[in-house]
Structure formats: structure tokens, C-alpha cells
Simulated assay, not measured.
Amino acid sequence: MATKFELPSPAVVVDLDIAERNIARVADLARQNGKKLRPHIKPHKSTYFARQQLAAGAQGITVAKISEAEVMAAHGITDILIAYSLVGDEKLARLKRLHERAQIVTTVDGLEVARGLATVGSTERPLPVLIEIDSGTHRGGCQPGQAALALAQQVRTFPSLHLQGLFTYGGNIYGSRNRAELAAHAAAEAGVLRATAALLEQNGIPVSVLSGGSTPATVVLDKLEGVTEIRPGNYVFFDVSGLNLGIATVNDCALRVLATVVSVPLPGYATIDAGSKALTSDPAERSQEYGYLVDLPDVHLVKLNEEHGYLRYDPAQRELHVGDRIEIIPNHACVVPNLSGVLYGVRGGKVEREIAVEARGKNY
């Protein structure tokens, strides 16, 4: 059995002990707080980890794109929320086929989207939908309150749609600087959902699902009062953003990119064979660098080209040599499996399995 440092670099490795611990911890937190867990699979895009999440207690999964849902359903994972507005005849035809063989729920944030979705369901088998509420990110969703009520009333006129409840993405929580701000953002997200649900129910529209929550919100789940379903994703792996938010430690970060020093052009300068195609150029919250070097906190990854990473360090304090292996926690772990296509599951530093990323490239 090979060690992780014998893998060809750059390689994406996942410490299975850490990932399994993260999966179990969030499942336990959801149970303790009375929340249904529907994790987002976009960080791993893998049926291996989706099955682990379901085995730990998740009651379904969340995907971003219909192509991810198609992959998961083809592998027998069929309780799926597609958390994205589906627009256009091509996607609606695919959704119709999925709806016929899986338990699909999707979101709607306007009448145009609702009209399209109404062509998917039928009176005998209506398509379940959640109204997406804009809780402050302005990325999507209708506005809370009266606008949401008006849309709910319109959705209810389509017998081929079944309005289950409300959905939001509280992305502002990622700007939190401390636990108090995490709690405040989570409470605000839940408050928007509760207030809009109350307005709908006052007008005779039942609401059974309030879907929200994210990985940062899992540390303040008690603040998601009234939310029935949470959709964290990044907690499986964590990354530099999690470190900087204070919701994870290095020992919680399961996914790392292994790279090799390929050049030392000057003292204090080194180049590795992992660039943006391995690590992603996504920034992290409150960081100007492109990853955290495990056991080398004084070495800084300051720039990426497609196939090169630029390291800077104090040569009076540190030496790096061609051939040195470097272990990097990426800024944004959710992007890395989609770049790689294969993850190496390791335990105790030994490679235990190759994990396929079946939904790699399924972004349509």
C-alpha cells in the first residue's frame, strides 16, 4: 500500500478519518437540534461521500445543477433537492425525466420559472417546489414578505406544482468575523424564513419546509429557530475559508493537495507543480494567499499560474529544496474535486482507495 507522498503530484488526497469525523459530527448536530440534514454534494460531487452522508443520517441530498442530480439518481441516490432555478426547454425536459424516477424537489423565485416547472409535473404527480427567498445576498430569490406571498399564490394556481415551503441561501454569514456575528447572521436568515412562512400561513398557504443553513451555521444551529432543513456542504472537507472563519482547525481539514517543489530560483523563492488547475484561484475570506501549507506556516503561496505555484519564505529561517513534497489546504475545497476527477482516500498516511468524482464537470 503506497503512502500519500508516493502519489504522482499534484494529487488531491482526503484523510478519511477526518472526513468521516466531520460527517458524523454534523449529522449528530442536526439530530440534536431537530433539523433534517440535506447536505450539498457540490464539494465532493462523489457518490462515495454522498452515501456516507446518507448512512450517517442525512435524509436526502442537495445539488446545484440538474446534471449532478442525473448522476446521483443514476447511482440510486434519489431524494434530491435541486437548489437552482431551472430555465429553458432542454432543462425542463431533463427534469421531467428525473421527476418520473426520483423524489425531486426544486426551487422557484418568479412566475416565469413557475410556468416552466408547471410543464414538468402533473395533477397526478405534482412537482414539489420551494419558493426561494432573497435573505440579503441578492444572488437570487424573490423578496420576503408580500412579494413572496404573491408568488406563493401564483404557484398554487398550477395543479402540477406542489408548494412545500421556503428556501434561502444565507451567504452573508461568510463575512462573519467572530462567533457572535455567525450567530447574528444565522438568526437573521431564520427570521426571514419564519416571518415569510407566518405571512403565507395567515393567508391560508401551509408551509411544511423551511430550508436554510450552511456549514458556518452548523456551529450556531440553535440560532436557526424554525428552520426544518439544513444544507451544509463544505463541512465534509473544510478549507482555508473555514480556518479563517474560526469554524475549523487544520485537523478538521480533510482535503489537501500534495505538490512537489520543482524549482528554487533564488533564496526565499520556490515553485511547486500545483497551480490554479489543481488548487483553484478562488480567494479565501481574509486571506491574500492561495492556500495554507501544512507544517510550513512561515511559507506563503502568493501566486498561481495554471501549472505553477509561487512560494515565498525567509531563507534565514527556512530552506526548501527541489523534490520536497508540500501539503496544501486549498482556499476553497469545493472547487478542487471538480478540477481533479479522482480523490485519493488515505488513512494513517496510507492510500486506502481511489474515489471517483462521478459528477465532475456536471455543471450544466
Rank of each mutant, 00 (worst) to 15 (best):
E285K: 14
N244I: 04
L301A: 02
R325H: 15
L210V: 02
A217L: 10
A180K: 12
R115Y: 11
E20H: 13
T157G: 05
L16S: 02
E306L: 12
T78W: 07
P159W: 03
E90Y: 13
E201F: 03
A11Q: 01
S276L: 08
R318Q: 12
M72T: 04
Q317C: 07
V87N: 08
D79C: 04
P216R: 06
G323D: 04
A74K: 10
N363P: 03
Y269Q: 15
L163M: 13
E70R: 06
R125Y: 15
D324L: 07
K303T: 14
A184G: 07
Q288R: 13
R312C: 04
N363H: 15
G145Q: 06
H185L: 10
R51Q: 12
V207Y: 00
Y48Q: 02
N363S: 15
R179M: 10
A50V: 04
Y344D: 11
M1K: 11
S287F: 07
D239E: 08
R318L: 06
V294N: 03
M1L: 14
L117W: 03
V14G: 01
L296F: 12
L279C: 06
E225G: 07
N203T: 05
I133T: 07
L210H: 05
P126H: 12
L221D: 02
S122N: 09
R179F: 10
G348C: 13
V63I: 09
E100N: 12
G88H: 05
T78L: 11
A2L: 15
L127W: 10
S214A: 06
E112M: 15
L311E: 02
S287R: 07
I61R: 02
A93G: 03
Y290E: 04
D17H: 14
P330V: 05
K223F: 10
Q288I: 14
V207M: 01
A147T: 06
R21S: 05
I205S: 11
P144T: 03
A152Q: 00
S46W: 00
R25M: 13
G88K: 09
F158I: 00
P283K: 08
G361D: 03
A195F: 09
Q53V: 09
F167L: 13
G213R: 04
I173H: 00
R231Q: 08
E181F: 05
G76S: 08
A148D: 05
R286Y: 12
A118T: 03
S9V: 10
G233D: 04
E189C: 01
K36H: 13
T271C: 14
Y169C: 07
V299W: 01
S176Q: 08
G242V: 09
L339D: 05
S176A: 15
E327W: 10
L304K: 00
A74E: 11
T62R: 06
V351T: 08
G345T: 10
A58E: 00
L301T: 01
V302H: 08
S263H: 14
Q288T: 14
T271V: 15
I77W: 02
H75D: 13
S135Y: 02
P159D: 07
G88V: 05
P144Q: 01
Y235T: 13
T271N: 11
L117F: 06
R325Y: 11
V342P: 06
L130C: 09
A102N: 07
I173W: 00
A184N: 07
A93K: 12
V209D: 09
V336D: 01
